[in-house]
Design a protein around this nucleic acid. Structure first.
Lengths: 354, 354
DNA sequence: CTTCGTAACTAATTCGATTTAGTACTAGCT
DNA sequence: AGCTAGTACTAAATCGAATTAGTTACGAAG
């Protein structure tokens, strides 16, 4: 006799009712076939060639009718493929990471990959722990943002803004030399000679390379990088806001009492903070001080004044990271490095030196 | 004779070498015990009481020595628990979603949960598909941001900014009435009578509720909500920037030629866009037009002028979402709604009406 | 001296799909 | 008739751990 569970002969009851999923075995019984046969058909495995089309059609029809979905865990356990990747970002927040993250989805989702995300706060221990925990979950690869890896990770990895060549790792990096040259020659053209610099925090993957590029470019342009105008930004403790750091360091810069007519900030966020500090000190931007940022975050063109900045194609870098990792996972070879080009976006925060 | 693979008798070779993981079976053989016994000890299952402490110590020591990590898939397949949750946000980007996302990690990671994240672009079909794909991956629950659910999802769910009461769903919402009242009474106190409004896009979960709250609050304060000053923001197509929408709608507002002295924008991003439009039209903020935003995004206090806004405790809302979901998953009861309070942050974008 | 109880385990099943090695049957060829 | 070659499948092993139902050995109680 029929037991008193709610009868649902339709497999696909629209409402989000949580009826228990159909299993391969049940589907097979329904079809009067073995689970093996059904699996073979559904996965279009090579052996399926010998199975007549009529049967195959029956199988697909029944699978659809009963709403069969292979169990992800069982399948992954067997195939050792999870179609998942792990993403570690410095901080889930505005600015840089947000820009890159937007690009990640593009290729991944359409290929059936999902990603776990977590933050590493620019701390090596957190990064290492994140890698380990994600590996336990059998992700197939990593995408890391602004991470300073010491050793090659155990899985295919793409690092956005990674400057160390490591076995099995593809670095997606901006051409920092071009970037620095663009920014500084723009300032030089405007007649700026006393230029202040925000140097990136030591725990930032781009900081050293960008600084080196700045020093090189300055030399080429016969500009001075004055130590008394160079400010080292500090990394943030968890949850702090980087705008504040730009603000504080700009105040410090002003307190030094040194004359300068322009600031090249490490990134847009710090630039915005600095701009605020200059306003608070009664200075005008750009009339008294020109500011060049870095990144071209979404808000950059809407600020007051709008921000002249070196544009990193953040979103594109995210897309590249996703695509390159997929290629790797698909067995393709990938280069140790992909270099993307920056672009100087001149807006209203720069003008000729006073 | 030993085969020519690199000998590693130490289980824990520091470098990220990808030696194949130790299995329960191997560990058991090493210990000269059955896999069952080892499993029982390691999981501290009740039956372990009858196993002498000495043996237990041996097991733990050996597990550590060999670097044994239970296979996540095998374990999950058996236990039907994945310690994963699914997060769907409107867009991985600056502003609202970034703020909330920052709060999510707090409780989840420390409890061993990771989350998949994907965007739903405020489109019901993408949301539904995301839910389905994530469910296939056997996430244990969902956290949704600004999602408009039609039907209750099949798993424990927390919706941040969800205004529909649904079975099994906890909504974390802002008290929109307080928010509207704060903002409008601030403007009323400053003598503003002709106030323009940006109404949220129809695909935004907060839009209707907030608009209703605004209309109610205006009535209470005897303020007029003039149709000719009310502008409907449009939802965005994939990848667009919301600043631009604020900018465009503000231009449209100006083009109507109606006098107004203040704007209450749907959110900070739209407010920033509008501010830019006003500047471009030769208007001053706040002297000619006061602006009140909504959210208090990270940059709000660093803008020029800094933005008066209704603060949503975004990060806290994220934390709450994570905590509440964990409680649910742990078997606890959770309320259908958690209401958080807004706060008016008065900065420099508002001043007495001209 | 048998029986019971318990300590200390182990064997076997289960989770749900994939995959390899077979098997039964038919058709064709000599 | 006997043999091969397909065709259309199925049975059983596998992935790696968790769990239930036993099993063995030993000491104590009757």
């Amino acid at each position: 006799m029929p037991d008193p569970k709610k009868g649902n002969s339709d497999g696909e009851s629209g409402a989000g009712a949580s009826q228990k999923p159909v299993r391969l075995k049940e589907l097979a019984e329904h079809l009067d076939l073995s689970p093996a046969a059904v699996s073979i058909v559904l996965n279009r495995s090579p052996v399926a060639d010998s199975i007549p089309q009529a049967t195959q059609d029956r199988v697909f029809a029944a699978a659809k009718e009963l709403g069969y979905r292979p169990d992800f865990l069982a399948r992954s356990l067997r195939s050792r493929r999870t179609r998942s990747i792990g993403v570690l970002v410095p901080e889930i927040s505005e600015g840089y990471a947000a820009g890159v993250s937007r690009g990640l989805e593009k290729h991944l989702l359409s290929e059936g990959y999902f990603y776990f995300i977590a933050s590493h706060q620019s701390e090596p221990e957190l990064l290492a722990e994140g890698l380990e925990r994600l590996r336990e979950r059998l992700v197939e690869g990593f995408i890391l943002l602004a991470a300073q890896l010491k050793a090659p990770p155990p899985l295919p990895t793409v690092v956005v803004s990674g400057h160390r060549a490591l076995e099995g790792v593809t670095n997606v990096v901006l051409d920092q030399d071009h970037a620095a040259h663009h920014a500084l020659s723009h300032l030089a053209d405007l007649g700026h000679e006393r230029i202040a610099f925000f140097r990136g925090p030591s725990n930032n993957a781009d900081a050293d390379d960008r600084w080196r590029a700045i020093v090189d470019a300055a030399a080429t342009l016969s500009l001075e990088v004055a130590p008394e105008l160079s400010i080292q930004l500090e990394g943030l403790s968890y949850g702090e806001v980087f705008y504040r750091e730009g603000y504080a360091r700009a105040k410090e810069l002003l307190a030094r009492g040194q004359r300068f007519t322009a600031l090249f900030a490490f990134d847009d966020i710090a630039a915005v903070g600095a701009m605020r500090a200059f306003f608070d000190a009664g200075l005008r931007v750009p009339e008294d001080i020109s500011i060049v940022g870095f990144d071209d975050i979404e808000s950059a063109s809407f600020l007051n004044p709008s921000l002249t900045t070196v544009r990193q194609p953040l979103r594109e870098m995210g897309e590249i990271a996703g695509r390159v990792l997929l290629e790797r996972l698909g067995g393709g070879e990938t280069p140790p490095q992909v270099v993307v080009k920056p672009e100087l976006v001149v807006r209203d925060s720069t003008c000729p030196a006073p």
